[in-house]
Nucleic acid binder design. Structure first.
Lengths: 199, 199
DNA sequence: ATCGCTCTAGAGGGATCGTTCTAGTAGCCT
DNA sequence: AGGCTACTAGAACGATCCCTCTAGAGCGAT
């Protein structure tokens, strides 16, 4: 195997990035292969060279990459606060602000696709689950690090994710940050209370 | 205008019901007009007679009808409990049980479409928002009836909906009721606490 | 009985879907 | 230099997309 020229990695990465961006705005089914190739400036043949499994394989990779990136973003927002409870509390208005700034377009890169494929495409459904699970374990381990029991940490982590995702859904439909702020305040209060007990 | 024969109403209703059922499982874009006509046994011409606006107009009607029906279903589950706090608490395991019983296919009839159209189809986005808003006001008025202030009632209603929707998303991806039960317990605790203050 | 309106019926069109296929280019190896 | 491999390039295919169109069935009114 010869050393891969940089153009190769760039082509692959551009395909993945373009696919993830299109999924974010319009979901899986509405994103055509033609739109991906046009948006990334990559010819059809290159796409099927890098992803012999076609649209599904590219989608899986885009979900994994976008999921990892978004997990890092949320983790960074939480970690830059002085303590975990504050970070969790501030992450909801931060998410609402980013959503609003993008015209209520840029929310969770996985959610739309996850609902579309949940009952129609088992391999992709599995990928969306793996992404959510990675987020849950990342947050859960932070809560454990703050002193919470394992079970309680996982419950709160799942609650946090459900609140964030539900908030995104309602806010995008309403084009208003209200729901995210409401649900965020309640989850943050619960996290505060849980962490106060073990302090 | 002559009295419309029953076949007419049946045709229209069958189209709407079939469309809503297909949206529930696979969303808006993946649901073709051909699948709707085949599933309802209605010819193409009849669809465009009843819905001159085509797929979008039929989708709007299906979302409104399914949204009203689902709102009544959730309201009934909540109201059959001895009191509001209990009804809200029990609605989460009930939702989780219904989801599990359907093989994690039958969840919110609006959510998938709402995310698909949020940034791509303004008329339909508006319809999804109206449905969510009708659910929020229905629950909010129940909370007001139990003695909560108007603002607090709306906050809790939006929180409830966000929790339910986020729970549906995570549970469908995971094919597990865990997230719905976790987020439901936390929201139910918060509702308990809020209602205990005013009792 | 004939007209007029609503609705059914499905063939067909133009566009786009995801994929396959053949050709050609670029760079490393011997 | 010649050959091999990785990759680019885009034309073309069959299937499916949403929609339009023509034809006729059913029924009440005059």
């Amino acid at each position: 195997m010869p050393a891969p020229p940089t153009a190769t990695a760039n082509t692959r990465d551009r395909l993945v990035a373009t696919t993830a961006a299109l999924f974010l705005h319009q979901g899986f089914t509405a994103t055509g292969v033609g739109a991906i190739t046009a948006g990334s400036g990559v010819p059809t043949g290159s796409l099927y060279h890098h992803f012999p499994g076609g649209k599904d394989e590219l989608a899986a990779e885009a979900l994994r990459v976008a999921g990892a990136g978004y997990g890092l973003l949320v983790g960074a927002v939480i970690d830059e606060a002085p303590d975990l409870a504050t970070g969790i509390r501030e992450s909801f208005p931060a998410a609402a602000a980013m959503l609003e700034a993008s015209g209520y377009a840029d929310a969770c890169p996985i959610a739309t696709v996850a609902l579309e494929v949940a009952s129609t495409n088992e391999p992709l459904r599995r990928v969306t689950h793996e992404v959510f699970e990675s987020w849950a374990t990342a947050l859960s381990s932070r809560l454990e690090g703050a002193g919470l029991a394992v079970d309680r940490s996982r419950e709160l982590a799942l609650t946090y994710l459900a609140a964030l995702e539900g908030g995104f859904l309602l806010c995008r439909a309403a084009r208003s940050p209200e729901a995210m702020l409401a649900v965020g305040a309640l989850v943050a209060d619960a996290v505060d209370a849980a962490l106060a007990e073990v302090r």
